[in-house]
Each structure stands twice: as C-alpha cells, then as structure tokens.
Design a protein around this nucleic acid. Structure first.
Length: 328
DNA sequence: GATATTTGACCAAA
DNA sequence: TTTGGTCAAATATC
C-alpha cells in the first residue's frame, strides 16, 4: 500500500513536471504565479514521497516504534532519565501538517490541550527553528504528551507538528479540531461502513455545535494532514486533536487499516488538494460536509496547493493516471 | 505572585 | 565533533 502511494506521489511529481514544461514551452507568457504553484506542488509531491520512504525505512529498521511513553527512560519527569533518549530514537511518531493561509498559527496550534513550550532549537538544514512543547500537566498529572512544531522548509505556511506520547491528563477544555478525527471517518467511508459512519457524522455534528470557536480558526484557513505512520493504532488516541468521545477513547476513531495519508482542507482559500476542489463556503453545515468528504482524504496525497489561483489546474489524482495524454 | 516563554547551556547519541 | 532534545534561570505576561 505504501509502495502504491509512493508510486502515486512520484508519478504525480513527474506529471506535474511535464505540466510545468508544457507551461514553459507552450505558454511562455503565462503568469509566473502559475509556474510557482506548479513548482510548489512538485516539491510537495516529492517531499511526501521522501517522507514515505523515511517512514518505510523506519519500519524496517525499527520494527517497534511505539510511543516513547512505553519505553524506559522516556519519562523526563524522572530526573535520572534525563538525556537518555535522543532524536531519531526518541519516538516522535505522529506528524501533522497544519497549513495556514493567514499569518497567525496560534489558533491552529490550539489543538485542545494545554501545551507548554520548553525549548526551541535551530535545526540543521532547516530554515526555521523547531519548538518543543509538552503538556502543561506534565508534572501535576504526569502527562507525558509532547509535541514539536516546525515550519516547513518548502512552505513556511505549513507547520509540521510531531506528537509523542499520550495525554493522560484530564483535560478540562472543550474539544477542538474535530476535523482531526476525520481521517477515521473517511476510513469508514472507504470501507463502506455506513452505519458507523453515520454515527460518527452525528457525533461530529453535535460537537460542531458545541465548539463554534473552532470555526473561527477554520475560517482563517487550515489544512491538516496526518502522515502515516507505522504505529497507526497509536496515533489517534494520542493524537492531539482531541474529541471527548468514548468512541475515540475506545479506539473507534483509531486504527485506520490503511496507511494512506489523510489530508484535510477546510479553508475556502485552500481547498486545493487534489480531488477536493469543490466550492466551499465556510459555515457549520458546510464544514460538516467538508469533513466528511471522502475523496479528499484518502485519495489526495498531500500536495499543498492553492487552487484558488490555479483554477485551471483542478484535477483529480485519478485523472492524472487515467489521462496521461493530458500533459502532452 | 503565579504561570508561561525565551534562551543559553548541558547532555548524550550519532 | 556535531547536533537534537531538554533543563533551568531569566524574563515577560496576566
């Protein structure tokens, strides 16, 4: 499955390159923005492919990449365990990409938990520093959840967030970012589990009514991607876009059977992922539709597009493969 | 005063 | 020796 996705990404990159070439040769007077967008897409596609390769190699070399929380020495509250873990072994296992079309990330980073920043580092080869956060309740409740946030090299509007550990704290905040649970919802669609999916949908709708503030954040433009990860069954319970749901806690939202990327776009300005180019208005009901949009998620490899300015390029991934002649 | 953030230093893995 | 992750003192904010 990952191989197929990888091929898909690489194929997409190749075809986008052809498209760019076509633009350069046949439409030399086309606006430079279009070319830049194509370039961005190509880079994103290869980015994705590379990250897939990385995760695959991680699986091969480290069969057990489970949450660090379960490994000894990861409990930083234990002073004696200080520095025992390091980087690649440290188990940053869940990666989410948050893209903001605006200038502020704060709302998007508010994933429903209380995080406390404890460090920041310049990372070699990265244009932007990486910030380290841990749960505010680390010491009061022994919650070991942590995350690191870094702007993407290729696209500073994208935040790459890696999560580690589970939240064991009793968070007292309203649930946020329902959208984050969407991946699983779409999984159900894929699997044809309609009844369960309907239940999820109802729950989503209820929760949406309870958290209008989320919409404000969404209106600023948000893309969330969960990249796959080997220990999928550990992702969503510890995934830090919480939903106060028994089902979530019990894993109904958990353990997607596939390793496809899950990608969401809920911005009227960023409805750009392949296959998710419907017109969108930002309202609660529409948000629900967006969230449940099946095609956008599993069929859409992460490609950060801003189709708003690239309307002519709207297409579906299947279109790419079904219509290779389009590019020639 | 309590809590959060910043930032230089430290540690250990690579 | 380099570099990522963390600590903790200083500083800022409420």
């Amino acid at each position: 499955m990952e191989k197929a996705m990888l091929l898909n990404e690489l194929t997409q990159g190749r075809e986008l390159t052809h498209l760019l070439r076509k633009h350069l040769h046949l439409h030399p007077s086309s606006p430079p923005e279009t070319r830049h967008l194509l370039l961005d897409k190509i880079l994103s596609s290869y980015d994705k492919a590379l990250s897939m390769l990385n995760s695959i190699s991680m699986v091969q070399t480290k069969p057990n990449v489970s949450s660090v929380q379960e490994s000894p020495g990861s409990d930083a509250s234990d002073k004696n365990a200080r520095f025992k873990k390091r980087k690649t072994c440290s188990g940053w296992s869940e990666q989410v990409r948050v893209c903001c079309s605006g200038t502020s990330f704060e709302g998007l980073l508010d994933d429903g938990y209380c995080w406390r920043k404890y460090g920041q580092k310049d990372i070699l080869g990265s244009n932007f520093p990486r910030a380290y956060y841990r749960c505010t309740h680390r010491y009061s409740q022994g919650c070991l959840a942590a995350k690191q946030v870094q702007k993407s090299n290729n696209d500073p509007t994208i935040l790459e967030v890696k999560y580690r550990g589970r939240h064991t704290c009793s968070r007292g905040r309203a649930s946020h970012f329902i959208a984050a649970t969407v991946p699983s919802t779409t999984e159900y669609k894929e699997k044809g589990d309609h009844s369960r999916q309907q239940q999820q949908q109802q729950q989503l709708e209820e929760k949406q009514k309870q958290s209008k503030e989320i919409l404000v954040s969404f209106e600023t433009g948000l893309k969330v991607k969960t990249e796959d990860l080997d220990n999928r069954d550990d992702i969503f319970p510890s995934f830090s876009f919480p939903v106060e749901s028994e089902e979530v806690e019990n894993g109904l939202f958990v353990s997607p059977a596939t390793s496809e990327s899950n990608y969401f776009s809920v911005s009227p300005f960023h409805m750009g992922s392949f296959g998710l180019c419907q017109n969108v208005q930002t309202s609660e009901s529409d948000l629900t539709e967006i969230i449940s949009a099946p095609t956008s998620v599993t069929n859409s490899p992460i490609v950060d597009l801003d189709i708003s300015s690239l309307e002519k390029l709207e297409f579906d991934p299947s279109f790419l493969s079904d219509n290779p002649e389009f590019f020639y």
